[in-house]
Write a protein that binds this DNA or RNA. Structure first.
Lengths: 364, 364
DNA sequence: ATGCACGCTGAAACCGGTTTCATGGAAACC
DNA sequence: GGTTTCCATGAAACCGGTTTCAGCGTGCAT
């Protein structure tokens, strides 16, 4: 990361607004916000009553007192301190989300779903990104725990199942997309077998005969394993199709080149197991001067915003990411509500969006 | 948002692991984590000493006591409760980040920078997404405040400057990309004038003569205003160039069509003021069957991962998003350290990445 | 030997809330 | 009318830490 020069300007500050200048020492002290005691005194009641007012047992209070408190709160602009509330009550209204790679569009989309659901239920989200680094994952888990989050949404490899298991004793956990062996929690994700089935059926219907599946390196990621396994297994039920699997990385270019140039059994298509694989493949195909649709078919699991723009568009199996996120939060909420039933796995179905890259097979 | 059917499976739970089944009531009670008192008792010291040990004044403790405490902490697996720490100390180690649109790649990239910087300094990030909705912004600001975050990074319109000003009395705020009038805080963003200059110079050098700038609707967003203003102003210093400005939305297709078909003064190029405008333009050009490079040039402010893949690649002015994020956090840290100097504006320079869409002008 | 400064330690107050429990007054009952 | 019940309310304990302050033992100067 080389430093990029930045131009630093001093912002002109019109001194007519003197009041803005005085208050600028945030250094730990000062923190002089209006507290529950202030409200209580102003309303001429006890802290307990104020607490009842802002809590769920407002019903206990008399009309008169409630009104006095309400006025005091509005007058003073009082906002209860969630930290303090969480201390005794155990309810911080915080949900943690641990993401393996925040720059993966899938993660973002799911996160958006989670975030929306959180807001609707009065929760807030602490997002941590591990950048696929186990040490960072460890650090973040410790940090999340120390903030007394009420539940955790996990979309990461979980290379330390023991730590997760220990955490699971303290709070509900929902896995997203990636299963962690030995961790008996709810799981929300895609019906990978079904997705692969849809992809293969579509390709076969369109007349393709040779299919190269491109996945990111497996590295224990359950969803990748499932997709690859489903692929190899389902090939057996599609006698017309012939297939192989490769992973992204150094060898991808050669693998694709070989695949495209080989004699083969008919029209050829590439099946990308996720969005990042699709990006990698598209780049390679471009390098190889291979035209989507004319030279080789392409279908991708995940639908990215730029898929319509490349060539005649890239056919996609869109995941209902928003819903996956929302469902994950719902699971958490259910568990927080005391539900102790056996862990569930919610497998959503993808949606096939046909675009130019598979609209009809190249005629060999 | 239509419901998509999900297949629900019950996860087989091998009963050999009985211990996992017993502990499953997260409903408020239970929360039986090891506390500072436990450590103190085990080590045979007072809470105060333990507090000193985990705090910054470990130096005050004698060798013997420190060792006993350390052992007790390790034995018990003690982790201090950040909530409780934050209560008295005022230091929650939480930073808030309010983002207008979490699905904008720019926001994500910056967020990633912020997140990394946070981690390196032991802070955690609470991310809130307003989805460009003022009410949500209000809610989120209130929530963030109630969590005693130590500082706020803001990338949103700030349609309620008074609320922000009030918040600014309590904590440092750093704006990203978007200025808020009347809010005298640090600002980190792009040197928009310079970016526009680079774009125009590049286009002129490459032989383009007519330039259509496409921006998202301004709506008070300072960076958009600056870019448009710079554009119209700098056209004056490039007598060879002729230009116009339109915004994305319903009229975009017609505007672009008109621009492309008009007789004009020479080769034509479109200048997209940000990544989303680039997406919109590319879609329209595709609809219109306009080829990038052959029919019309294209340069975009922001660089997205798919730019190399469309046509012969889209020329971009990449923002140093990682650094923008990191700098924003640094500003915050400086203010938290008590720096009361006048608010600064850090304007980073973009980097020109030439691709096929402007490599040479179409010969008319 | 006494006085004093100093460094380590623990008791207790405190942060801003929640919750338990005791209390007092009104309503209900005999 | 006296007793009981019930309800609204407040005092105080509590959550898990931090911080103040007082105490105590030690070393050093007197």
């Amino acid at each position: 990361m080389k430093p990029v020069s930045a131009c630093i300007r001093e912002i002109a500050c019109d001194n007519t607004n003197k009041r803005f200048q005085a208050v600028n020492s945030f250094s730990a002290a000062q923190r002089t916000r209006v507290t529950m005691l202030d409200v209580a005194q102003r309303a001429g009641v006890s802290k307990a009553s104020v607490s009842r007012f802002i809590g769920e047992d407002r019903a206990l209070l008399s009309e008169a007192i409630a009104e006095r408190i309400e006025r005091a709160i509005n007058d003073l602009g009082y906002r209860p301190n969630q930290m303090a509330r969480g201390l005794k009550r155990g309810r911080t209204r915080l949900i943690g989300m641990l993401v393996a790679d925040i720059r993966n569009p899938y993660s973002i989309a799911v996160m958006h779903g989670v975030e929306t659901a959180c807001r609707l239920h009065g929760y807030n989200l602490v997002v941590c990104n591990t950048d696929r680094n186990d040490e960072q994952e460890r650090q973040h888990l410790a940090a999340l725990r120390s903030y007394n989050i009420e539940g955790l949404i996990l979309n990461t490899l979980g290379h330390d199942p023991d730590a997760l298991q220990e955490l699971h004793q303290e709070m509900p956990i929902v896995l997203i997309d990636r299963k962690v062996e030995q961790l008996h929690t709810d799981l929300v994700g895609l019906d990978n077998a079904d997705a692969v089935r849809m992809a293969l059926e579509h390709l076969e219907q369109q007349g393709y005969r040779d299919v190269l599946m491109v996945s990111e390196p497996v590295d224990g990621t359950s969803s990748r394993i499932e997709r690859i396994d489903s692929f190899t297994r389902q090939l057996a039920t599609h006698p017309a199709l012939h297939g192989a699997v490769v992973t992204t990385g150094a060898g991808l270019r050669v693998a694709i080149q070989t695949f495209v140039q080989a004699p083969g059994n008919g029209a050829k298509a590439i099946f990308c197991a996720n969005g990042l694989a699709a990006l990698a493949c598209t780049q390679v195909l471009r390098d190889l001067n291979c035209r989507l649709f004319e030279d080789v078919g392409l279908i991708a699991l995940d639908d990215l915003e730029w898929f319509p723009l490349v060539g005649n568009g890239i056919t996609a199996l869109a995941q209902p990411t928003q819903q996956i996120g929302a469902s994950a939060f719902d699971c958490l909420l259910k568990r927080l509500g005391g539900d102790k039933s056996a862990p569930l796995a919610l497998d959503f179905a993808p949606q096939l969006i046909v675009r130019g890259s598979t609209r009809q097979p190249p005629t060999t």
